[in-house]
Design a protein around this nucleic acid. Sequence first.
RNA 1: GGGGGCGUAGCUCAGUUGGUUAGAGCGCUAGCCUGUCACGCUAGAGGUCGCGGGUUCGAGCCCCGUCGCUCCCGCCA
Length: 614
Amino acid sequence: MHRYRSHTCGALRADAIGTEVRLSGWCHRIRDHGGVLFIDLRDHYGITQVVADPDSPAFKVAETLRSEWVVRIDGKVRRRPGGTENPELPTGEVEVYAREIEVLGPAAELPMPVFGEQEYPEDIRLKYRFLDLRRERLHRNIIKRGAIIDSIRWRMKEQGFFEFQTPILTASSPEGARDFLVPSRLHPGKFYALPQAPQQFKQLVMISGFDRYFQIAPCFRDEDARADRSPGEFYQLDLEMSFVTQEDVFAAVEPVIRGVFEEFAEGKPVTAKFPRIPYAEASIKYGTDKPDLRNPIVICDVSEEFNDPSVTFNAFKNLIKAGGIVRAIPAPGAAAQPRSWFDRLNDWARSDMGAAGLGYIVFNTIERETAAGGANTARLGAAGPIAKFVPDNVLRRMAEKAGLNSGDVLFFSAGTEPAAAKLAGAARTRIGEELNLIDKDRFEFCWIVDFPMYEWNEEEKKIDFSHNPFSMPNMAPDAFLALDPADRDSILALRAIQYDIVCNGVELSSGAIRNHRPDIMKKAFAIAGYDEAVLEQKFGGMLHALSLGAPPHGGIAPGIDRIVMLLCGEDNLREVVLFPMNQRAEDLMMGAPSEATSKQLRELHIRVVKPEQG
RNA sequence: GGGGGCGUAGCUCAGUUGGUUAGAGCGCUAGCCUGUCACGCUAGAGGUCGCGGGUUCGAGCCCCGUCGCUCCCGCCA
């Protein structure tokens, strides 16, 4: 018999009754009835009930066992007595009557029990991650993560992609985030950077003629964490294709993503064909470039309506005169909400969003009647602090624009375009949640397309790249090369061939058709105010490669951790990462980061200068 | 860098208007219990109320500061 086990703790069924078996695992739960003692023995595969009574030679040892001790148990499989079967367990028909117990690894008192569904503070969970990982939910998430990555791999390979491994120790890349630096021993004063993404490498793979690249790629960024943004490191499904248009990338990626989601969504519906929403449209309708399409609320612009001469609401009129806008957020059925609900939303807008407020009009009745002549008339009953400043005909226009029904409420977000859109987007999310309009049990995807190539940096009064500087501008090359850098309007109106995949309000990935022409690249950087020397110094190698026969190419890089997070139904990446860091980018279990020894620092030619206290 | 929330037993939490000796459940220790599967029953141990200062006759509770965790903004595909 094997030293540790003949079966796993999830293996035994009725057909094993009568056989001698050997199991090893953790004492999940022990129930001592004095005369008879039950041990739920747990391993990766499941739980099997072990029984010992005073007739068993193992009884004495069994009485000393405690939670989470690791033991080996020899015994005979027997059918549980009638009426004591446990239908909750796959092994619930049988039990093992213990003949011999060997303690393989005793456990001290646990800082955090493994058994049960109790929640624990993050720092304790992270410090004792190995205990947390024994628990069912995290254990299942990590296994699911592996299965998802397997599925992604075969789906990619099936589409003719090859997996490559790119360097971890490399040079700084142009993603725009802060780099993690690694000091060089051989080159005093010089540093490697960990890749923020294998962006340049995958483009070089295309220039090398490999045609279809992918990698489950570790990426490193020294930026502050969020619930959906791991500190330090994360994984991307990084992919790149040669001789492709945006359509080709969509056609390659969408089936992989949809397929993976359908495979692991446990029956929840997945968008059949991802709709494409231009960036500008998403900004108006959803107030964000990562809309949650499970939320049925659609924002509309009502600047024109509020600017109507018959409207006397000057707070908005003045804003519009100063170049601002007004967005309307419909809240279906919200007329039934108490006054305090509206006040709370208004308080939220003021305190959390730093807005002047969230005005609203309650549309109590909107009755459309077809008059004898065939013309539509409608009776309106509107209420709320703003209603009296807006005449009926304008109210009617707003109601129609926003698609309102009787009993709906229209909230208003006013201000500069970005601020008003952002508040409207946040209000849309909040109202959708409060009114319970969001069906959590589905995966709603979309592509966001037509991102602006540049944006105006108000602080520095200059034009910046708005996203990835390596994207191809969506303009005929000759026209682009002829652009006047001073023609700010044309430049800010320019789109890049760049796209995002969004699912349930989570940005899953972003990609682009790359700029593979050095002349266009130089022009693109010149528009953003980089002279050729800077470009040459920072991306000289890349430029050179592009000048020696580069195929048109493009790709995308969906975030693995976020995909797994969505499919596990979690709202924090830590629940799907094996050994995550805390929000301050510390590994509480391993004690990272830690100080280096003076010998290490000497070898690296590094002197540490700590920030002054206070 | 900024804002919000939280911090009381190993863990999850309660703690009234500032008032005697700070409680419960789980866990732990001991005892009892022969069919449980969140077993049950009895008893016990376990506390610098995050830390420091202040107000007060008296502070877990009020004030100031500080530290830690977390969520968000900034930042970041």
